[in-house]
Structure formats: C-alpha cells, structure tokens
Design a protein around this nucleic acid. Sequence first.
DNA 1: TAGCGTTCGTGTATGAGTGACACTAACACC
DNA 2: GGTGTTAGTGTCACTCATACACGAACGCTA
Lengths: 212, 212
Amino acid sequence: MSDTNTRPATAVVLFTMDRVLKVLLVGGGRWRLPFGPVADGEGLDACAKRILTDSIRQSDTYLEQLYTFDGATLGTGGAGIVVTYYALAPLDKVGIPHRDSRWFALTDAPLLPDGHDRIVACASDRLVAKLAYTTIAHQFLPDQFTLAELQAVYEAISQQPLDKRNFRRRLQSSAHLVETGGIRREGRHRPARLYRLRQPDQVATLKQGTPK
Amino acid sequence: MSDTNTRPATAVVLFTMDRVLKVLLVGGGRWRLPFGPVADGEGLDACAKRILTDSIRQSDTYLEQLYTFDGATLGTGGAGIVVTYYALAPLDKVGIPHRDSRWFALTDAPLLPDGHDRIVACASDRLVAKLAYTTIAHQFLPDQFTLAELQAVYEAISQQPLDKRNFRRRLQSSAHLVETGGIRREGRHRPARLYRLRQPDQVATLKQGTPK
DNA sequence: TAGCGTTCGTGTATGAGTGACACTAACACC
DNA sequence: GGTGTTAGTGTCACTCATACACGAACGCTA
C-alpha cells in the first residue's frame, strides 16, 4: 500500500527549437520524461537541474516550476507526488542527448505512461501562454539573433503565421531589443541585422494593458 | 536531520472580500496560514480542501494550486515540501471562522513565520494577474450581483479606481454576464439591476488578443 | 406632495494601437 | 550585369481604450 510518505519526485519537460518545438524523452522503447526522486537535503529546483544534466550535458537552461501532481491524478495508482518543471534551451546549447534520450517533435511524440502526456500538455500550454506576455521566446535563441529567427520561434510555438512588418514593429517598440550593430551573412542575399535582449539574463514580463 | 522523505504538507491562502481583500490566518498569537500534512492515500486537492474545512465550515470554494516550495526556500530549515493553494470565497459563504482563526486585511496582516509571508504574496500576485484575463472576481460575489459590487471587487484587488462607464461597457460586451431581470433596492436611491454569470460554475478565460 | 439626497445608468469624442497589405535593398552566384 | 533570395520598410482603415457629465429612479422628510 503506497502512502504519501513516498519520496517526492520531479519530472522535467525540456523543450528546444529545431524548426519545430521538440521535447526530450528518455528510456528508449518505453519513452517518458526525465524523472527522478528528490534526494535527501536536495532542493526542488536543484533536483530538477540534476535530472536535466543527467539527460543532456547542459544545465544552464531556463527552468521553471510547472505544477505538482499526486499519483491519483497522474494515474500511477497513488504513489508519491510529482513536482513538475519545464525547461527551455536553444538547440546549439543542448548538444547530443545522453544515452537513450531523444528529441521528439511535439506533434509526433509517442504516448507516454504515468500521466507524462498530461505533464507535457500542461508545459506546452504554459509555454504558449507565456509567449504572449514575456520574453520567454528568447530562451530558444543564442545571445545574438535576427528578427527572422525570433519570428520563426514565435510562429513555431503559437502555431500560426505572423505578419513580418507587424511583428517587427511590435518587438522593436517593446524596448526589450537592442540592435548590436552586427550583421549576419547567410546565403546569397541581403544580410540580416543582429539584435540582443536588453536584459539577457531575465525573462521580462511585458506590461499588458490593464483595462481601466 | 530532516530529509525529503518528510511527509509533504499543504498550505492554503484563503481570501475573501469584505470591502478590502482579506486573508484567513490561524493560530492566535502566532499567526500563520492554515496548514497540515497530506494524509495517507489523500490527494493534494483533497488535502487542501480538508485543511480549508478545518478553518471555516465551507469547503465549496474556488481552489487552485499555487506553487510548491521546499523547506530551504521557505526558510524552515530543510523540512519537507509544501504544496500551496489559494482559495476564494464570498464573505456571506464563509461564515464565522473556527476557533482561533481570524480575517486580516491583506495590508495589515502580521508577519508570518516559515515563509508564509512569501506564500501570501505569491497568492496575491496570482490573484491580481488572473483578475485581468479571467472571471475570477466573481468568486467573491453571490450568484446574483450588481455591476457596482463587481466593480468594487475589481477595484479592491487591483488597488486602483476604475471608470464606471468604461467598466460597465467592457464587462457587458464580454458575453459572460447575463441580466437576470431582477433588481435590488437598497437605500433611498435608484435600484440596481442584477446580473449573473452565464456559466457560474467555471472561471472562464477571456480571449486576450494574441498580437499578430 | 414637493423637494432633497443618493446611487444607478447612459453616450461621445479623441487618441493609441492593431491588422492588412507590396515593394525596394542588399547580397551571392553565375 | 543579370538573377534569385531574403532583409527591411510605410500607410491606411479600423478597432479599442480613455476621459468625461448628467438625467433617472428611488426613499425619506418636511
């Protein structure tokens, strides 16, 4: 008989952006989220970070707590609680996944056991929501990026095409972007200007018009 | 030496609206949030509900998970994790608090131990944020209400005065309100029309214009 | 019953922001 | 120098947000 004294665990939904949104799954054959019990004396955030480095080499990613589930909700039959996190990393940072882990496009990930499907859906919803009022999209890009790259991230997450001129106008008037002065040549066409975040180390909340 | 095997607990921030936003604290003298360990085989939501009914008679309130803290973050010295919730109830529903619990205006609540201050602040932030894009404010009102009452709730939570006409226009065009046809006489002045939510049993999310 | 005090309920004009839309600029390559 | 490809730019129409003032409906009282 399982009781709530079971050691709590954390699960991490790690997203990256490779043309489309992808999620990291582990466990070859029986795919699931990176997952593990919290160690003695370990903080929750620290645990999530540890689990992350166990799957990819990089741990310096955006990491945020998502939701806490009990066994009954996840359908695992009443075992201990699971504190879930989601993490975002640019593709060039995550490198090659460890051992038996793999990237799956969100749209064609396999069915996951133990309610992990639900956790992924929850993380995906959060990501879409935060896209609209924070600078979270930049977590998928390197320090310097072009506006076309940024727009591609927005389009991939929101799953809808955006108007180029309106997108640029909105972002440029948000005061979060700074032109670096650098340009990127790529292919035989006009080079793109490079931008960076004014405050690269934080996910800023955009002032959303409080209706009066 | 405490380890993470310590039984998880839940804490609940219960708000009500009595002219101003108030929060329920327990423990006379050494005030803190309603709080307790999760029982064997008990779900997290169920635990939060149980803790709520232990402080007030009513358990049929809006209840939502807030965040999960570890002991180190709360400053309790590394004991088990705390899954926090917040709850909202109209004043006429909560009745007289049990035993040694009391309502405190959010602005003059005492200092709370064990990081409970932080939990209250977190809940308050969430509440303010959700005010803008959900129908959460209605959880503080009875089924039928006047627009003036609703406006008072919005003003109390957002802590800023709202223009009466703009407020009414916005709410009435949101398609969430239905005029009941009833009126309320109160004092020697023109009676107010009564409204109710179109879907009273759910907190609806308002479509927030996704910028394109 | 006429007047007063109080809250309820309503419209408009102005400015800001959003959405739709098409062409020139700059480069690499041939 | 011509071609192919992506980068970068402006305007107009419309919707939405904001600011703002007065008549309506009632209870009370003189």
